[in-house]
C-alpha cells in the first residue's frame, strides 16, 4: 500500500472517535497524550495534544482524509510528533466512531 494509492477526499470529513476506558490507555506526556487502543483485535496508537481530548477524555476529534482499498486514512490533531495518521480498516473505524 502506497501513499499514491490513496484517494483523498475533496473535503476531509470531521469525525469523533470514542475512547472507551476499557479499551484505551491514555498516557500524558507534557501537553500531549498518548492514546493506545485495541479495536477488533488490532492495536492503534496516536500522540495528540491534550487540548484535543474531550473534557471527559472519552473521545477525540479526527478527520477522515481519504481511503485506500478497504482502509480509511484518518488524521489526528498535530502533536509534538507531527500528525498521527491511521490507515484503519473501515470495519474497525466504524466500531469506534461516535454516532
Amino acid at each position: 500500500m502506497w501513499f499514491g494509492d490513496t484517494l483523498f477526499y475533496e473535503k476531509p470529513i470531521d469525525i469523533t472517535i470514542a475512547l472507551p476506558p476499557e479499551k484505551v490507555t491514555l498516557t500524558p506526556f507534557f501537553h500531549d497524550v498518548h492514546i493506545l487502543m485495541e479495536v477488533g483485535g488490532n492495536h492503534y496508537d496516536a500522540l495528540v495534544p491534550d487540548w484535543a481530548l474531550s473534557k471527559d477524555r472519552r473521545s477525540v476529534p479526527a478527520l477522515r482524509a481519504g481511503r485506500c482499498g478497504d482502509k480509511e486514512l484518518v488524521y489526528f490533531p498535530i502533536s509534538n510528533e507531527g500528525r498521527p495518521t491511521w490507515l484503519i480498516p473501515r470495519s474497525d473505524l466504524e466500531r469506534i466512531l461516535v454516532k
Binding site: 501537553h31 487540548w51 490533531p77 498535530i78 502533536s79 509534538n80
Partner: peptide
C-alpha cells in the same frame, strides 16, 4: 526540529 503547520501546543 520540525513543527508542522496546524500545530498548537507547547514544544517538547
Amino acid at each position: 526540529p520540525k513543527i508542522d503547520p496546524g500545530f498548537h501546543n507547547n514544544i517538547t
